[in-house]
Write a protein that binds this DNA or RNA. Structure first.
Lengths: 200, 200
DNA sequence: GCAGAAGTTGATTGATCAATCAAGAGAAAA
DNA sequence: TTTTCTCTTGATTGATCAATCAACTTCTGC
């Protein structure tokens, strides 16, 4: 796959606009005017709007480590604190954007009810990568959790908490909802670690 | 507010289409052809598309008890089981619609990032009513929970779990994700009730 | 029965949408 | 230099969008 400067500019612009305004509400004309590119160039690289979304999701998938995990985990070593640092990254995103940025993938997941299979698979893959990263943290902390803990299910549940907490915080425009949700999750994980340490 | 047969037919059709296809992806023409109503009649009752959405959200708000809670709780007395019966209702909706129906309000909440204040307030109100209903269940079961339980925060967390679980289940088209999420929530609440009973 | 209000019809409007395409510029290979 | 391929330009297309409106019918109060 070629990657000229123009192509990259289009993908970066589309990424931001799809994630803030949503896919359907972002017009090709929006992307063209924002990125200072003409329609012919866009359609030279992408057969249609859907293919542009595919490129955006592939770009996001390939950048999850550098652009999300490494930033959130720069200062953190403890695997369980890494999980909450990740959630804290989304908290910061909410506050800094005045609740405009939530979870890019979550927005698309609900907006595109009957999407192109390529798109559904990429959304699913982005979820799976996120879950896998959290699950890896839980694996690192396995000795602090009860032996029968289903760590994959717990990682899925942490994604669930993040997505639901963002949804409610954005609607209420109140970070308190987000914080209370994370606090309940924290208490659940605290209980698990206490249980595990009591059994040793 | 008047409520002719035509007006109601429009609201019911819009309700279903907004909730399945989303607001932006549902055109007025879609609603007109499905409801067998002509555009002049629609615009006689509603100044614009946004006002139709307002009417839909008001209708949903007013019907939450009869159309959601009473149905889910018909056979259930135990307050904690009522909560899981409510979640089971969404599970059934997912399965029966082949993952087309999720949570109507959740979809709109993420789709409309910068909505009309009336619309944002109505979405928020629908969330609050749902949380309040769950919180009332928790209040009924207060003696089975630890004394320091923040029941409002826990009710918010249950909404979070429901929304996040639906999002993931729809994306994966797999009810297993939903079930695992609910199982983790169930284990959390079980731990709380065990804790409370140990202290008496 | 009559007048005015409420509701209906459906062709039509202008805006905006995604997408097209012919013409040409620029770079690279021969 | 000539040829070939990649990339850019921007006017244009037809489809679809939300919304309008004047003419018409039905209902309601008197």
């Amino acid at each position: 796959m070629m990657n000229t400067a123009t192509r990259q500019k289009i993908v970066m612009t589309a990424l931001e606009m799809f994630f803030v305004k949503g896919y359907n509400s972002t017009s090709i004309a929006d992307i063209l005017s924002r990125s200072q590119v003409h329609s012919g160039s866009l359609y030279h690289f992408f057969p249609g709007k859907q293919d542009l979304l595919v490129a955006v999701l592939e770009f996001y998938r390939d950048g999850i480590k550098e652009n999300l995990l490494d930033i959130a985990w720069g200062q953190v070593d403890d695997p369980i604190e890494k999980i909450f640092a990740l959630l804290g990254g989304y908290r910061t995103g909410l506050l800094m954007s005045d609740f405009a940025h939530g979870c890019p993938i979550g927005n698309l997941a609900l907006e595109l009810s009957e999407p192109d299979p390529r798109i559904r698979d990429l959304i699913q893959l982005n979820f799976e990568n996120w879950i896998e990263a959290v699950e890896h943290c839980l694996d690192e902390a396995a000795n602090r959790l009860p032996g029968d803990t289903d760590r994959h299910a717990l990682a899925e549940f942490i994604l669930t908490t993040m997505e639901g907490a963002i949804m409610q915080a954005r609607t209420a425009r109140d970070i308190g909802v987000f914080d209370r949700n994370v606090a309940v999750l924290r208490s659940h994980i605290d209980i698990l670690t206490e249980k595990a340490s009591a059994h040793t």
